[in-house]
């Protein structure tokens, strides 16, 4: 398609760099999602890839949470991408791309699990993949919100929290201090400051979302 050819010739390097490399503020993040959707609709292939670098892990996490195994989660990513290709142009709030993708991922995950299981086992699938379960919907929206919040932390905070809170098992203060060029005693306070920044971002994003 003509649009696809344009994309490969006319990718917006600033846009892509802004998305992939840098943390961004809340307003910028929403604006970037909007620009990403717009660029995808113009045929910008790199913007499309950036969407999936940015939100592919979210889609997979939703799928895994819904009971998909690793292969099925890969399948869900492709399904969600197809739905996205079909629906991006009619997306009412492109700045809320993350939440929309999480919602589609949840439904597609339900389909994958439903196809895998015999009909008589559907009751045992449980509420976690029932597309009508409001609590789960809220959880997936929060997953999207958390990803946004974490992505907006300064790079150093992201690195520290990644190593001390998210990695399993976490790195030691000594290792983190050594690689960051910090004193070991400063890691604890920095870690807490980063957690507080994360809390404020979550609060801010929650208010904006509501």
């Amino acid at each position: 398609m003509a649009g696809s050819r344009r994309s490969r010739e006319g990718a917006d390097p600033d846009l892509i760099e802004g998305i992939v490399v840098h943390g961004d503020s809340w307003g910028e993040s929403r604006a970037l999602d909007k620009r990403l959707v717009s660029a995808c609709l113009r045929g910008d292939e790199e913007a499309w890839v950036a969407v999936w670098q940015r939100y592919g892990p979210l889609v997979k996490a939703v799928a895994r949470r819904a009971g998909c195994d690793a292969e099925e989660a890969r399948d869900v990513v492709q399904r969600v991408a197809l739905v996205a290709l079909q629906s991006l142009s009619s997306l009412k709030n492109p700045e809320k791309l993350a939440g929309w993708l999480a919602g589609v991922a949840r439904f597609q995950s339900f389909e994958v699990v439903r196809q895998r299981r015999p009909a008589e086992d559907l009751d045992s699938v449980g509420p976690s993949v029932d597309p009508r379960a409001d609590d789960e919907l809220i959880r997936e929206q929060e997953l999207a919100l958390l990803q946004r919040a974490f992505g907006q932390l300064e790079e150093r905070c992201q690195r520290l929290l990644q190593r001390l809170e998210l990695k399993e098992p976490p790195d030691s203060y000594r290792d983190v201090a050594s690689s960051e060029g910090l004193s070991e005693t400063s890691i604890g306070p920095i870690r807490r400051r980063c957690m507080q920044r994360l809390r404020r971002l979550v609060e801010q994003l929650s208010q904006s979302a509501s």
Partner: peptide, 8 residues
């Protein structure tokens, strides 16, 4: 949840 995200 963040750990879930970072595993993927």
């Amino acid at each position: 949840s963040l750990r879930d995200l970072h595993r993927e």
